[in-house]
């Protein structure tokens, strides 16, 4: 009964927005990576600089309140790229500033992004241990 009365999200429209906005952010990333590559940075440094640039850009848009406006339409298009991670870090920092630099900004900054770091890191440690024991068997 509840399921029937509850409207669904407009799936097609949501996906189109997510596709074009998410794709555009990645396209921008590819442009930056090429640019940094031409400037003489090695591949891994160019990739890291690309991330840093996108993070900074997302922080500026977040501080201006524009990232939220874009995200209200783009959904996963702004959530899934690294700019979404930066938004998840920067927005609580701004919001909880009034509760103090230590108890607000410091304590709440990773309230949304924290789980990503915890479980991402956990997965990488598990893989690291597995890799350590698998390595001799792989002939490496």
């Amino acid at each position: 009964m509840n399921r029937k009365a509850s409207p669904r999200s407009p799936l097609g429209k949501d996906c189109l927005w997510a596709f074009f906005v998410g794709g555009s952010i990645c396209l921008l990333g590819e442009g930056l990576r090429t640019l940094y590559g031409r400037a003489g940075f090695v591949l891994t440094d160019a990739a890291a600089l690309t991330s840093v640039t996108l993070v900074a850009l997302s922080a500026v848009l977040t501080a201006l309140g524009w990232y939220q406006k874009l995200a209200s339409r783009a959904g996963a298009g702004t959530l899934v790229p690294i700019t979404g991670f930066a938004n998840a870090v920067v927005s609580p920092a701004i919001e909880y500033r009034v509760e103090g630099l230590v108890t607000g900004v410091g304590a709440k900054m990773f309230v949304i992004a924290g789980p990503v770091i915890v479980w991402g890191m956990m997965a990488s440690v598990v893989w690291g241990v597995v890799y350590y024991f698998l390595r001799p068997m792989m002939g490496g």
Partner: peptide
């Protein structure tokens, strides 16, 4: 880059919706 990035976001959107 555009196509794959967009597609990965669509997967996220499908999970949300």
């Amino acid at each position: 880059a555009f196509l794959v990035g967009g597609a990965l976001c669509v997967i996220g959107q499908l999970l949300i919706d």
